[in-house]
Simulated assay, not measured.
Amino acid sequence: MLEIITIGKKNQIVIPKKIRKRLGLREGRKLLLEVEENRMVLVALPQSIEEIAGIGKGLYEDGYLDRLRREWDEKSLR
């Protein structure tokens, strides 16, 4: 989704209503601003642990973390 916005007199920008609604952004929400060469990227920071639950799903092959935990347990028993 692309939107054209304007920088105001106080160097502020307004996030359009339909984007705020789509992303669930409200007053006071913290955003991360990242500059990539000539681009600005805004990322909404999570407000709770529930928002990031499952973020790593699919990152590791099935059973990998269980095997790793067993190895740690075995090493700690030595």
Rank of each mutant, 00 (worst) to 15 (best):
M1G: 07
M1H: 10
M1R: 12
M1A: 09
M1W: 12
L2Y: 15
L2M: 13
E3S: 15
E3H: 13
E3C: 13
E3Y: 13
I4M: 15
I4W: 09
I4K: 15
I5V: 15
I5D: 11
T6K: 15
I7R: 13
I7L: 15
I7H: 13
G8D: 15
K9S: 12
K10W: 06
N11L: 09
Q12S: 09
Q12F: 03
Q12D: 10
Q12M: 05
Q12N: 10
Q12I: 04
I13N: 06
I13F: 06
V14E: 13
V14W: 08
P16F: 11
P16G: 02
P16Q: 10
P16C: 11
K17G: 06
K18R: 08
K18G: 02
I19W: 04
I19H: 07
I19P: 04
R20G: 02
R20H: 03
K21V: 06
K21N: 07
R22V: 02
R22A: 08
G24N: 04
L25Q: 10
L25E: 05
R26N: 02
R26F: 10
R26I: 05
R26P: 03
E27L: 14
E27F: 08
G28D: 13
G28K: 04
G28N: 12
R29G: 06
R29P: 07
K30C: 02
K30I: 08
L31C: 10
L32T: 10
L32S: 02
L32C: 00
L33Y: 07
E34L: 08
E34D: 04
V35K: 12
E36H: 14
E37S: 14
E37F: 11
N38P: 11
N38L: 15
N38F: 13
N38D: 14
N38A: 14
R39V: 13
M40T: 09
M40W: 10
M40H: 04
V41M: 08
L42C: 03
L42W: 09
V43S: 12
A44L: 02
A44P: 05
A44C: 05
P46K: 02
Q47W: 02
Q47H: 01
S48K: 07
S48L: 05
S48G: 00
S48Q: 00
S48E: 08
I49A: 03
I49D: 03
I49L: 09
I49T: 01
I49P: 05
E51C: 02
E51G: 04
I52C: 10
I52S: 03
I52Q: 02
I52N: 01
I52V: 00
G54D: 01
G54P: 01
G54I: 00
G54L: 01
G54E: 01
I55H: 04
I55A: 02
G56R: 07
K57Y: 04
K57P: 07
G58W: 02
G58F: 00
G58C: 00
G58L: 01
L59V: 10
E61F: 12
E61D: 09
E61G: 12
E61C: 10
D62P: 12
G63H: 14
G63E: 11
Y64F: 15
L68F: 14
R69H: 09
R69N: 13
R70K: 15
D73K: 15
D73C: 09
D73Y: 07
E74M: 00
K75C: 01
S76L: 11
S76C: 05
S76V: 07
S76G: 03
L77H: 01
L77W: 07
R78C: 01
R78N: 09
R78K: 11
